[in-house]
Design a protein around this nucleic acid. Structure first.
Lengths: 165, 165
DNA sequence: CGAGAGTTTGAGGTGATTCAAGCCTTGTGG
DNA sequence: CCACAAGGCTTGAATCACCTCAAACTCTCG
């Protein structure tokens, strides 16, 4: 967040991701649950002791942090260079591939985020997100029911709309 | 990069940063030297052997990757939520604090990047970068000589222009 | 001196924002 | 069972920031 209230969501976590920062006291980040969530919390000291005692654990955590770094950098391309339409399509593609990993053809899911959250994730306003959603709906790239429930008839068309040839 | 040529620079490395991805064959990233650079390169197998053999090395690398993750997320706020002026000021602040770490008051440095690179780093066009540079110059936030050499009389004013109260 | 790359500047266009109104959906109390 | 309030979402009109296209300028190097 910036002092004047502008806000950027910098990542989404999906089970069973690890959340937190070992070996470091502070962070300018906050985390919020978007859906009902079950969390397994360790005191920092316990985690650090486990890392010291368990061969391979730090390796796993290093691996996840490299994965998150790649995802963050991918998303920087989305934030910096894509149009509003491509951003919204990219977001829908991200959710589609995480929520409904099977069923390559015609997947369906509930959006875990409100329009306001999506806007903060994409660096857009609520209104722009809404407009692009209706456009994608009118272009038959997605179907929407009840504002939150989305069906993607052809994931590849969505991927194209996201700018990923 | 996107298929149509749009490009986003996702990070800058400064000596003695570690560059590369152990335990992984592929990456969609490329790296370019912006200045004359001395690089110490290890075959991937050698690095992985060193990590296995050297206690504490993986810990160090994990630490750097966490640091880079924080930096990437910070930059996502810049890309997604800041104005062109704030973006350019943020970039100048980043360079100022990395190139000339001493001298809190009135530091001076050469930009390691061309306008085109700065634009790709900030998600802007060359022209917009240029215009914002001139505005910052006219507002006496920076002094510019020969397009590349910049003097910051008051780093705190630059920080304010970057949106960091 | 001339060529070329890099940069600046201007004019005009456009996509996203802003501000404002209206519309659903859901939950609450009469 | 029906107001009705409230939050979330959509839609419209006008504005603005940034982009696009084009031209001119500057610096460097042969």
């Amino acid at each position: 967040m910036m002092a004047d209230g502008r806000q950027q969501i910098v990542g989404l976590q999906f089970a069973p991701d690890f959340l937190g920062r070992p070996f470091s006291r502070e962070s300018s980040l906050t985390a919020e649950a978007a859906t009902t969530t079950e969390i397994c919390a360790f005191p920092r000291a316990a985690i650090e002791r486990m890392i010291a005692d368990t061969p391979g654990l730090e390796h796993k955590l290093y691996g996840q942090s490299l994965k998150e770094l790649d995802e963050a950098r991918d998303w920087m391309l989305t934030l910096g260079r894509k149009t509003a339409r491509e951003k919204v399509a990219s977001f829908l593609h991200l959710i589609a591939t995480h929520i409904d990993p099977e069923a390559d053809d015609g997947c369906t899911f509930d959006l875990p985020l409100s329009r306001a959250d999506i806007a903060d994730f994409l660096g857009l306003t609520i209104e722009t997100v809404s407009r692009q959603m209706t456009k994608l709906r009118k272009d038959r790239v997605i179907l929407v029911e009840n504002n939150r429930h989305v069906t993607v008839p052809d994931i590849e068309r969505l991927n194209e709309a996201a700018g990923n040839d």
